[in-house]
C-alpha cells in the first residue's frame, strides 16, 4: 500500500508539470500587453518598457516559463501582477477556506441524500417510487446550478420578502449571517451531486441484489430488510466512494459559478477576476493548486477504495 501511494505521488509530478505547461501556454496564446492594460493609453513607450521589465514580461516566453516553474517547485507561486504587495500563495490561502467550506457542505449533503434516494429507488425498482426518485434526481443533474441559485435567491424575496444577505461576512465575524449565505449556496451546489450519487447507488445496489450471495441470504429466510441493509448495501456502496471523490473534485469547479451568483469571495471569484485581468501568476498558481487538490482527493479515494474492499489490493 505504501508503495502504491508513493508511486501515485511520483506519478503526480509529470501530470502537474503538464498542467503547468498547459496553463502557461494557454495564458499566452493570445498576445496581450498587460503593461498597457495596467497603465492605460497615455503613457510613454519608456514607461511601458520599464514596467514590462519589472514584471519580467520582456524576456522570451520559454525563459519566462522556466523562471516561473523553477520558483514554483521551490514553493513560490510568485506575486499577483496587479496587487504585488501580497504573494499568490497568501491570496489563495485567504480564499481557499471559503471554497472548501462550500464544497464540503455540498458534498456531505449530496452524498447522504443521494444514497438514501438511491436505495429507496433500487428497493422499489420500476415502481412509481423508482420513477419519481429517478426523475427528480435527474433534475439535479439537468438543472444548471446558476439557475437553481437564481431561483433560490429570487423567490424567497418575492414571496416572503426574505433575502439572502448580499454581503459576505466571515464565520468568526457573524456566524449567523455567514451561514445564511453559505448554506443555501452549498445546498444548491450539492443538489447535482445528490442526483449523481443517487443514480450510481441505485445501479450498483441493483447489480449486487442480482448476485448469488444475495440469493443465498434470501434462501436462508432472512427478511428483505436484513438482506438489503446487512448484506447488499455494504458492497453496493463501495463504488459510490469513487463517484463521490470525483464529485467532490467537480464541486471545486462548480463553486466558481456558485460563488459568482451568490457573491461569495472564494477561489472561484478570485480566478474569474484574475483571468479577465490577465494576472498570469495568479491564474497559473490557482489552477496548479486546484489541480493538486483534485489529484489528492483522487488518491484518497483510491486508498479508501482498497481499505473498504478487501478484494482490491494495490501493488
Amino acid at each position: 500500500m505504501t508503495r502504491f501511494i508513493v508511486r501515485r505521488l511520483l506519478m503526480l509530478i509529470p501530470v502537474l508539470l503538464g498542467v503547468s505547461l498547459l496553463i502557461f501556454t494557454l495564458m499566452r496564446v493570445v498576445p496581450t500587453d498587460v503593461a498597457a492594460m495596467m497603465l492605460g493609453e497615455n503613457v510613454s513607450t519608456e514607461t511601458l518598457a520599464s514596467l514590462r521589465k519589472d514584471l519580467g514580461l520582456d524576456k522570451p516566453i520559454p525563459l519566462q516559463y522556466f523562471e516561473w516553474i523553477s520558483n514554483v517547485v521551490r514553493g513560490d507561486l510568485g506575486r499577483s501582477i496587479w496587487l504585488p504587495d501580497k504573494t499568490v500563495t497568501e491570496r489563495l490561502l485567504q480564499r481557499l477556506p471559503v471554497t472548501f467550506e462550500l464544497a464540503l457542505i455540498a458534498t456531505s449533503v449530496g452524498i447522504i441524500s443521494g444514497i438514501s434516494f438511491g436505495v429507496l429507488a433500487a428497493v422499489r425498482q420500476d415502481t412509481w417510487v423508482d420513477n419519481v426518485a429517478r426523475a427528480v434526481g435527474i433534475i439535479g443533474l439537468a438543472a444548471p446550478s446558476f439557475w437553481i441559485a437564481t431561483i433560490v435567491i429570487l423567490f424567497p424575496a418575492i414571496f416572503w420578502g426574505w433575502s439572502i444577505p448580499a454581503a459576505y461576512v466571515d464565520l468568526t465575524e457573524n456566524p449567523g449571517n455567514h451561514l445564511m449565505k453559505i448554506v443555501p449556496a452549498a445546498l444548491v451546489l450539492g443538489f447535482s451531486l445528490t442526483a449523481t450519487v443517487m443514480r450510481y447507488s441505485r445501479t450498483t445496489l441493483l447489480e449486487v441484489l442480482r448476485q448469488d450471495y444475495v440469493r443465498t441470504a434470501r434462501a436462508k429466510g432472512l427478511t428483505e430488510r436484513v438482506v438489503i441493509y446487512r448484506h447488499a448495501l455494504k458492497n453496493a456502496l463501495i463504488p459510490v466512494v469513487t463517484i463521490s471523490g470525483q464529485a467532490f473534485a467537480r464541486q471545486l469547479g462548480g463553486t466558481v459559478i456558485i460563488e459568482t451568483v451568490f457573491n461569495i469571495p472564494g477561489v472561484g471569484l478570485l480566478m474569474i477576476g484574475a483571468i479577465t485581468a490577465r494576472d498570469y501568476n495568479m491564474v497559473q498558481g490557482g489552477i496548479l493548486i486546484l489541480a493538486l487538490f483534485l489529484a489528492f482527493s483522487n488518491l484518497v479515494v483510491d486508498v479508501l477504495y482498497a481499505v473498504l474492499d478487501p478484494r482490491i489490493r494495490y501493488s
Binding site: P14, V15, L16, G18, V19, L22, I23, L26, M27, V29, V30, A249, R250, L252, G253, G254, V256, I257, G268, M271, I272, I275, T276, R278, V283, I287, L290, A291, L294, A295
Partner: peptide, 24 residues
C-alpha cells in the same frame, strides 16, 4: 493517456472558463 490525465487534472469548468476568457 498521460496527456489526457493532464487535461483532466484541471476542474473542467475552470479550464473552459480560462480558455474562453483568454481567447475571447
Amino acid at each position: 493517456m498521460r496527456c489526457m490525465d493532464v487535461v483532466m487534472a484541471i476542474p473542467l469548468i475552470i479550464l473552459a472558463i480560462v480558455m474562453v476568457g483568454i481567447l475571447g
